[in-house]
């Protein structure tokens, strides 16, 4: 059964790759993310819209998903769901991931800082002022 052996080898390779990725991905720390979030506060708040949309509930939300917020055309067309993976990509370089976004910010280059920030955003959604 050479075919089965190839399939098994492929499955093992995928599993190993996935485990390597899982190990390599930084684990976010919401407490550290609190400090990093201060960088966002020229334009964002958790519980109300400003120059940028509010962040309560952002993890799991569709892009351009805050009712009543005046998103850019680019963001309206992005068709993303904000999870840890997409937020990580976006926060690394917003204009690169969504060209034309009005989030004209070069991004957070440090993967650990991005993980911390995303952990903070996730945790913030479960307590005041979001709840």
């Amino acid at each position: 059964m050479p075919g089965n052996i190839v399939q098994l080898a492929a499955a093992i390779a995928i599993a190993v790759s996935a485990s390597v990725v899982a190990v390599a991905a930084p684990v976010g720390n919401a407490k550290r993310g609190t400090d990093i979030y201060t960088r966002c506060q020229a334009c964002h708040a958790l519980d109300y819209n400003r120059t940028g949309p509010k962040h309560c509930g952002v993890v799991g939300r569709k892009s351009a998903g805050v009712p009543g917020f005046d998103y850019s055309t680019a963001m309206k067309r992005a068709n993303l769901t904000w999870d840890e993976r997409t937020l990580d990509r976006f926060l690394a370089n917003p204009p690169k991931m969504v060209p034309g976004t009005t989030m004209t910010y070069a991004g957070v280059p440090d993967p650990q800082e991005r993980a911390d920030l995303i952990a903070y955003l996730g945790a913030a959604g479960n307590k005041a002022p979001c709840r």
Binding site: T38, C40, A42, P95, T104, Y105, A106
Partner: peptide
């Protein structure tokens, strides 16, 4: 102060673009 610190970060993120 929170707004001003955020503004520093925002301009810091905008300048290279």
């Amino acid at each position: 102060a929170t707004l001003e610190k955020g503004a520093v970060s925002a301009y810091l993120g905008a300048v290279p673009l």
